[in-house]
Design a protein around this nucleic acid. Structure first.
Lengths: 196, 196
DNA sequence: ATCTGTCTACCTTCTAGTAGGCAGATCGTC
DNA sequence: GACGATCTGCCTACTAGAAGGTAGACAGAT
């Protein structure tokens, strides 16, 4: 039956939304139970403990990201375009308030107080994004589509920091448009200035 | 008697450390009571509610920041140097683990789920840092000590995002040195390239 | 006959917060 | 200077509710 996976997906989705707004300690099984419409005890059937639930959530979050990256790289050849699509993805999520913040950004902020199993998954997520961005920078440098001023892995970390910092600022001011305001010049700087 | 202010300062200090690691919902009056060595009920004497405590904490955090900024601007004339001192302050705090994360960055991540009184103070903190950095950028542009490629307020937001994004990455990877790795090129870009 | 998903009912621990008492310091008044 | 009144800071003892989690029953599908 697909009811099983349906309910457990609903649980994960509502947990994701709740974490997105208040972090690991900002939600409870009771909160999920209200959203999904089942009893607390039934959630424990799908995810015995809160650690199990969030660990699985972050693991899937990373896997989904990895799948998206594969699709993105298949469809967009130009490296600058790849970075633009990535930035625009977040710009859209923030501006239409559908996913106004990265689950792993919030969990990473709380890292020292997270259960170790969850913390490990969160670190894995950041390592994945970072190493992916590094490959994009390297490729863009070699093929001459990106204008790098530092080593690829440094440019990758700097770009990631800009995206996540911009996300935080947008939330802090309550102004979604701040994200794009910050990202535009960052992307422009990576564009090759064509000499003509 | 100075006992009063001493204890209430100790309470604020321990709350700050606890929030720095796990956010608003990541600590309790019981946690503070253990650190400070007084009973839970005694904390309520100084701060009737958790909202009162954290609101005061964030307010003072901003006021302390404002005072530091005044001193900094009095002692350091060059705008690029000001930005360097600011970045180095955080680099040092992160690397010696004394204040490995900004209290307001953590609270801003949780903003949608914070009590409104606290949320307002957190937004105020970000507005203060942002408008201060904007004045630094403007001054540096006019006096020709900074190399800006966007409007001052955009450069200010971008710099702030880089600092806070780098802070997050350092925490996410568990590698304090990542902060400086990201900040160095960001500061270099703001340096005027002398034509000779 | 077993497995799956849900339920009710319950448990323990933790949460923020309250009531009220008590010791010591401070203060105005005689 | 002595005397009571008030204020301050802390205490013990308590509360109601929320937290994560468990036990066991039951219906329906396999």
């Amino acid at each position: 039956m697909s009811n099983l996976s349906n309910t457990s997906d609903e649980i994960l989705a509502s947990a994701r939304n709740l974490i997105m707004s208040g972090g690991y300690n900002g939600f409870s099984y009771a909160d999920i139970s209200e959203v999904v419409g089942i009893r607390k005890a039934s959630i424990h059937h799908h995810f015995p403990s809160k650690v199990d639930l969030v660990r699985e959530l972050v693991k899937r979050y990373r896997e989904d990201g990895q799948a998206s990256v594969v699709t993105l790289e298949q469809n967009v050849p130009d490296e600058l375009d790849i970075l633009k699509v990535y930035a625009n993805h977040w710009a859209k999520c923030i501006e239409d308030a559908s996913r106004p913040y990265c689950v792993c950004a919030l969990l990473a902020s709380e890292l020292p107080s997270l259960p170790p199993e969850v913390a490990t998954e969160v670190t894995n997520f950041f390592r994945f994004i970072s190493s992916w961005l590094t490959t994009v920078m390297e490729r863009g440098y070699k093929s001459g589509t990106l204008n790098l001023t530092s080593e690829p892995h440094v440019e990758a970390e700097a770009f990631l920091a800009t995206v996540y910092g911009a996300m935080l600022s947008a939330r802090a001011y309550g102004k979604p448009e701040v994200f794009s305001t910050i990202l535009s010049p960052a992307l422009n700087r990576l564009k090759l200035t064509v000499s003509h």
